[in-house]
Nucleic acid binder design. Structure first.
Lengths: 338, 338
DNA sequence: TCGATTTACTAAACCGATTTAGTTCTATAT
DNA sequence: ATATAGAACTAAATCGGTTTAGTAAATCGA
């Protein structure tokens, strides 16, 4: 059986109340002798408080619900969890992770289960940056949206990647290398991420006075096979691009495949920049793929820190854009002389 | 404020005891009329029991600790969590996920934190198949090891991949395609996975009477760059292999890189089989990589089912090897005529 | 018709902590 | 010498449920 506070108290010859006060540092009016005795007995017996009992009484569980659509179970964004968990750990909070698989009924059940466990706050995280509407039940406790933005920005705190900034840096990186014909392969499904990345690409083209035109955009699904087809379409045109900026790394891997089939060498004949910095992909292909990194770890930390802020200060909701740095590998070089 | 059982009871004009019994189905001696009234009030008020209070009294939390070294935060084995969570959900259990980052001090803290929360049982999961010794504190509650084996097999239940079977199938797949010179790139660090996969490879060579010899093994680290160097060594020999079986997919991606640099085309000039079926890697390279799949989802499910078995039946510890199927893509073909 | 069951409920204990409102006892002030 | 304040503790209430023991009224058997 586990050692209870009662056991410690009895062994130390004091009441449970006294023992509780000593072990919680509320010992202003406890004699130094008693204090020492209780502490000694507690550690001798290896006493650990029952968190359930404590939480029931104090109405705070130090548990944070982490609700995600599919982060936990996919290889993409685990760093968000890591970041959040690190901060939680540091402050003696525990994360209760759960997955909804995008199913509203599961989401409802999950949120209820978490609230039944009296979580103090919640992080509502998504795999992709989009616009979300968390279940209303979460409105009753501090909730921070991670990797998305809420429909009603006044209702929830949120942190999302600075897609525009990251994409701008990527395209400028290509422009700086001397490219004037920079194409983009995008996912036409149009989540905020896609719209912002394409807007940034277009803005750089304009600002720098680079080539533009419909033959410099191709649409594809978010996988290598589809990316390869899109890249082939771009590269087989009359005046092909010398660089391609891809919506994500898997499409960029597709661009490698298309280039290889056309006898083009990367980065000599074609420069490529991806997005997401998916290490498994970026390092599986040759040369390594230069890519824009999603700041998953930082966003996870920020979300959790914001949760703590909401719990402590009772601060109001806040939004934050997190910068996306470029990770350079070997897929960018000055354009060849044609 | 949340609705308490007391509120439901008052509104229904009964005692809390009666309300509790009705809502828990222990209503043998409650009149049909009262039963209906309590239920109606409960759903009208949207009553949800406070799980902390219930657990404190019943001494069961329906929470399972999921302790992993780094699964949650890396892109490799999330499917184990998914499988475990699916089964847990189905039986109204909740998973408390945590990461230890291989640090014993963190592991100790984590396990204590979970036990403080009165978890009913635990799953001790690892990223790689190895031999582990879970903290002794876990010996007091039902614990299942996931993706590894315990030092003391009598102490814990466990489930691990059938590495030998999977590797055997992989090498036989190459042999069946007509290859007689099948090399292996292995990680010499020697975890059980590496030893078993190499043993299987060697066994198939012997059984089938295929070529063998020191020039058919190369050692490498578990990444593409190192795999490429190892593959280059194999392929630049006097009598190069026509097929390579790799310890993992990242090394296999390295083999692609080496082949490409030597002007060899896969699968025309070289067949490759990987291990892990890391989709991000296997589909980023061309042609798609044939690989052996680790049954993460199935292992996760089995582990959780075993936890439930231990909780319900009080059954004894059990071990289980889970089969690893081959996933065929395009990297295997009959050897070319040299 | 009277004691024995059965039916339908409730009061109170309990889970393991925290916290409030007291209670002793000693030391100081008047 | 007596009221007063502070020091050092404890009894009891509390959190929100579950469960045991018990009670009052209705039904049954002989």
């Amino acid at each position: 059986m586990r050692v209870r506070l009662q056991d410690v108290a009895e062994r130390a010859g004091v009441s449970a109340a006294t023992a509780s006060m000593v072990l919680n540092g509320k010992d202003d009016s406890i004699s130094g002798e008693t204090r020492a005795r209780v502490r000694a007995v507690a550690s001798e017996l290896g006493y650990r408080p029952n968190v359930l009992a404590r939480s029931l009484r104090s109405q705070r569980t130090r548990a944070i619900g982490f609700i995600s659509d599919e982060i936990v179970t996919t290889p993409y964004a685990g760093a968000m969890i890591q970041g959040a968990q690190y901060v939680a750990d540091e402050h003696d909070y525990v994360l209760l992770l759960s997955n909804t698989d995008y199913r509203p009924d599961v989401e409802k059940r999950t949120v209820e289960a978490l609230l039944d466990r009296q979580i103090d706050a919640a992080v509502y995280a998504t795999m992709y940056h989009r616009i979300v509407e968390p279940p209303t039940a979460l409105g009753h406790i501090p909730t921070v949206i991670l990797d998305s933005r809420p429909k009603d920005e006044a209702a929830f705190s949120w942190v999302a990647p600075d897609e525009f900034g990251g994409a701008t840096a990527a395209v400028e990186h290509l422009a700086d290398a001397g490219h004037r014909r920079i194409a983009m392969i995008n996912d036409p499904m149009g989540p905020p991420a896609a719209i912002e990345r394409e807007a940034a690409w277009r803005t750089v083209l304009e600002t720098r006075g680079l080539d533009d035109g419909p033959d410099l955009v191709a649409h594809a699904d978010s996988d290598a096979a589809s990316g390869a087809m899109a890249a082939a379409r771009l590269l087989e045109g009359d005046d092909p691009p010398t660089a391609i900026f891809c919506f994500n790394d898997r499409m960029a891997a597709g661009a490698y495949i298309a280039a290889s089939r056309l006898g083009l060498s990367i980065p000599r004949d074609l420069s490529v920049v991806g997005f997401d910095n998916q290490v498994l992909v970026a390092e599986a292909i040759d040369p390594g793929l230069t890519s824009v990194q999603l700041p998953h770890d930082e966003m996870g930390r920020w979300a959790m820190e914001q949760v703590l802020r909401l719990l402590d200060d009772g601060a109001g909701p806040q939004g934050k854009r997190m910068p996306c740095p470029i990770v350079e590998r070997g897929s960018v070089a000055p354009p060849g002389q044609l």
